[in-house]
Simulated scan of single mutants.
Amino acid sequence: MQDHIVVLTGAGISAESGLSTFRDNGGLWEQHSVYDVATPEAFARNQELVLRFYNDRRRQLASAQPNRAHQLLAELEQRYRVTVVTQNVDDLHERGGASNVIHLHGELTKARSSKYPELVYDIGYRDINPGDTCDRGAQLRPHIVWFGEEVPMLDKAAEVVRTADHLLIVGTSLQVYPAAGLVYEVDRDVPITVIDPGEPASVSRARFIRKGAVEGVAEWVAHYL
């Protein structure tokens, strides 16, 4: 039976494809207040600003390309069962070849009804504008989990982590909850590797590779295989 490798990824892996992170120096939260662009209240208060913010993110994503870390993780599928659980809202894992990706915080390339959350639409890299509506007439919004909203894929992600034979963590500070709590769902005897050049939160018994995603994933893959 194939080993199950579960990969938890954060903004660090996408940063190496040129996508702006949110929390680092010069990141998006230094340029925009969370309360202006990433809460349900912000959308109710200034729909046009919120839509423009995510339209800009979508345009940036359209010009970005998956990097070697995305591709190496996808290539693992040739020999192992691999599930990527990502905090990122981009589609770089999928474009890099990954076939099994759980998006904890939503997806930029999708829109959903602001009134009927079960109505979700693939929009690619197109803008969402005021007046764009779902099939039932309600305004469309980004398919993003905003601050103050539940994380609907969290339970599914926790179930997946519990089945891991190896947990690989790439490009995340492990300081953003509830996603960071997934580390504690893994079985006690399952090895954990953290790849990040910074100082992520401490994880007991984890092996640390203090390198960027591309270099670190290459090192880990060479060691694991």
Rank of each mutant, 00 (worst) to 15 (best):
D24T: 10
V84A: 03
A98L: 06
D3E: 14
A42Y: 04
V82R: 02
A64Y: 03
G137D: 09
R188E: 12
M153V: 04
G124A: 07
S17A: 14
A69F: 01
E107H: 08
Q65A: 14
A164T: 04
Q31C: 07
H105V: 01
T21G: 07
D165Y: 06
A201E: 07
A157R: 01
E219R: 09
V176Q: 01
E219C: 09
E150Q: 10
Y224W: 13
V120T: 07
I5S: 00
F43Q: 14
E107R: 14
V151W: 13
T21H: 03
D36M: 02
V6P: 03
L72I: 05
G181M: 13
R205Q: 12
G216I: 09
R81S: 02
G10N: 00
A158R: 15
V176K: 01
F147G: 11
P152T: 00
E185D: 15
G27Y: 09
D56F: 03
N129I: 05
S113I: 10
V89Q: 07
A111Q: 01
I123T: 08
G131P: 03
D189Q: 08
P40F: 10
R52H: 05
G171T: 02
R112T: 07
H93G: 04
L76S: 03
A213C: 12
D91I: 00
E94C: 03
V85Q: 02
L104P: 10
T21L: 02
S204W: 13
P117C: 10
E77V: 03
Y125N: 08
H93S: 02
I195R: 11
V101M: 00
Q65P: 05
G124K: 11
V194N: 02
V84Q: 02
V6L: 06
Y177K: 05
Q31N: 04
V120G: 01
A15I: 08
